[in-house]
Amino acid sequence: MPDWPSTDAIKGYARLRRVEFLLYRAGDEGISLTEIAKDCGVNRSTIFRDIRKLEEDGVPLQVDKGRYSLDRTRYLPAIRFNLHEAMALFLASRLLTRYADSHHPHVAHAIDKLAAVMPKDLLQRHMVRAAELVRARRGLPDLTRVLEQLTEAWANRRRVRLWQKDSDKGPSRPRLFEPHFLEPSGVGFSLYVIGYDVHKQAWRTFHLGRLDRVEILPEQFEPRTDFDLYTFLKRAWGINWGSGQDVIEVRLRFPPGRITARVKASEWHMSQHIEDLPDGGCVLAVKIGDYIEMKPFIRQWGKDVEVLAPETLRREIAEEMRAAARLYD
């Protein structure tokens, strides 16, 4: 029979993980020993011993005026995944690397850690290879640094001052910004930060590759409840949701056969509706705030798609197709 730990030891381990979670959740404000003890149903001296044990295990603790917290930039609490959950994370990281045009070192490290705990067989070999492929991409250390700073600011609800790269119009001015979300986009293989521009008093989206630098400020911000990010993202084909007020219905007609079969095999947008046509073709209809990001999707079908609406998009695609054809005359 295996030598199982005592019931008290199991409780102690579970409490240790709970203390670790409470410290992490407390953020920069921290949490007192009394508050932790009350949550765990034990006395302060027990929690103090747990704190010492976490420090011995290498957990980066911080204490300020009797309030304890974790350094979030150096540590995350332990998370347990089953095989299928770990595979879901691996597939998500693979998707990110396919849509990224540069080396993201943290993605490679994350895949390495997943590979280390996978069965030492086909899965692990492919994960190790995937991490190697990530490292083979071009390195953009400035972009990595901007991403790290925005991640830390977002996690800790800290305002930032950010500068866009200088343009033909002259040097950019710093913006006081509250980062609320980081979003990848397959359109242009890009990463974006979405947040509130304090001086403009408006929501803004910035392409990380166009940011020159980011400075994390000491003041925190409260998440704004007057803006439902996911409602607006539902109106975007990629990241651009337009004005946020108007919705455009884009209607595309596809011919019968394998093209229609391919169109019907995927969900291209959350708002999509597919109409079957008498000839076996179909019409794909989506409702979005702006169609500019949808143009590459339309162009990739070549002669196998016709824009039915809106009329402005139909004219723009027609002119682009004629201009492209002239290159081959």
Rank of each mutant, 00 (worst) to 15 (best):
A110N: 06
R74K: 15
D64C: 11
A88Q: 07
S69C: 03
R67Y: 01
V63P: 03
A100D: 09
L95T: 14
H84Q: 09
G66N: 05
A88L: 12
V59E: 01
L70T: 11
L89N: 03
F90W: 11
Y68L: 11
E56W: 01
Q62K: 15
K65W: 02
A92K: 06
G66K: 03
R94E: 14
N82S: 12
A108S: 09
V107A: 07
Y68E: 08
A115L: 02
L114W: 10
R67D: 00
F90N: 05
K113F: 04
L96D: 09
T73F: 05
A78W: 07
A92N: 08
D71P: 02
A115Q: 02
A86R: 13
Y68F: 15
L61T: 08
Y99S: 15
Y99M: 15
A78L: 11
H104P: 10
A86W: 00
R52L: 14
Q62A: 06
V107Y: 04
Y75E: 03
G58M: 01
L91Q: 15
H109M: 12
L70S: 06
D64I: 07
L83T: 10
L114T: 08
V107L: 15
A78N: 01
L83M: 14
N82A: 03
H106I: 11
E56P: 00
L96K: 06
H109C: 09
H106P: 04
S93N: 11
R67I: 00
A92S: 13
P60Y: 02
A110V: 07
